[in-house]
């Protein structure tokens, strides 16, 4: 008799636990597709960003970044998946000879979703762009923020050789969570000394922060970079900017594996205005 009661109790506990699990699963499935609560960040530590009022703790290793939010603040931030529209793939023409040190391996599959605080949007869209090369070889600087990401003729600006930069004025200070950059994806090429910096002033004197740098030998004089070089694709390069604050964004490069010129199809800066 005692054994029967024990068995009955065991079955009851298992049933309650099972129902509890099912309910939790259903609740999760009912979440809006584009919204991901903070607690899911652990599932994608390299892509998620949590930004409180003060900076979280960030650690970086080649190819891996983990961000931890300040205690007590993270729970209030709702993360959403960035909706990044991709152009059509377009590899054509004569292949080029790629021989680059520190080159990252292609992921071989679509990039995982990137999470940023709700309200984050492309704040670079239609913003003014200036450049170290004021007379591009072809194209206009305005093409960099016009929303056209195709690799066709007429969609990119071509800048002269050597180290060149383009600068986007976001018109106000923003928390910047991510950048997506398309240099030129009509050919499989790698851009040299690709450096992205954010600052409060257009001369890049005040509050200069580097969010990407693959200049591993500091040949461009802006510090030794630890990020990896990568092959251009239609997916663009997503850079985790970790919520840095600034108004101006500069992107440097020093030619590519096909030629000594510098190209931009589109740059998107995902952020929110600083309150």
């Amino acid at each position: 008799m005692k054994q029967s009661w024990s068995k009955l109790l065991f079955v009851f506990v298992c049933t309650v636990l099972l129902m509890s699990c099912q309910k939790s699963s259903e609740q999760q499935n009912q979440q809006p597709a584009q919204q991901t609560p903070q607690r899911q960040q652990a599932a994608a530590p390299a892509q998620g960003i949590v930004q409180g009022q003060s900076s979280g703790q960030t650690t970086s290793q080649p190819g891996q970044t983990t961000t931890t939010a300040p205690a007590g603040q993270a729970a209030n931030v709702q993360l959403v998946q960035l909706d990044i529209k991709l152009p059509k793939p377009m590899f054509v023409g004569t292949p080029t000879n790629i021989a680059v040190l520190n080159l990252e391996k292609p992921l071989g599959k679509p990039r995982p979703p990137f999470l940023a605080p709700a309200g984050t949007r492309n704040v670079a869209f239609k913003k003014a762009v200036s450049s170290s090369d004021e007379q591009p070889v072809i194209g206009e600087l305005s093409m960099i923020t016009d929303g056209d990401k195709e690799a066709a003729e007429g969609s990119f600006v071509e800048l002269g050789p050597k180290l060149q930069y383009v600068m986007i004025d976001l018109k106000a200070r923003h928390n910047i969570y991510a950048l997506v950059v398309w240099h030129y994806h009509k050919q499989a090429v790698v851009y040299h000394d690709f450096i992205v910096q954010v600052a409060d002033d257009s001369d890049f004197i005040s509050n200069v922060q580097t969010v990407f740098n693959n200049d591993i030998d500091n040949s461009s004089g802006r510090g030794v970079g630890k990020d990896m070089s990568y092959v251009e694709t239609s997916e663009g390069k997503l850079i985790d900017a970790k919520g840095v604050q600034g108004r101006y964004v500069r992107l440097y490069s020093r030619g590519n594996t096909a030629n000594e010129l510098n190209h931009y199809i589109e740059v998107e800066v995902y952020g929110r205005a600083v309150q």
Partner: peptide, 14 residues
């Protein structure tokens, strides 16, 4: 062997 390729276009007004 090459992937599918869209036809070449040209910039407006050119």
């Amino acid at each position: 062997n090459r992937s599918l390729q869209p036809d070449n276009g040209w910039p407006k007004g050119s």
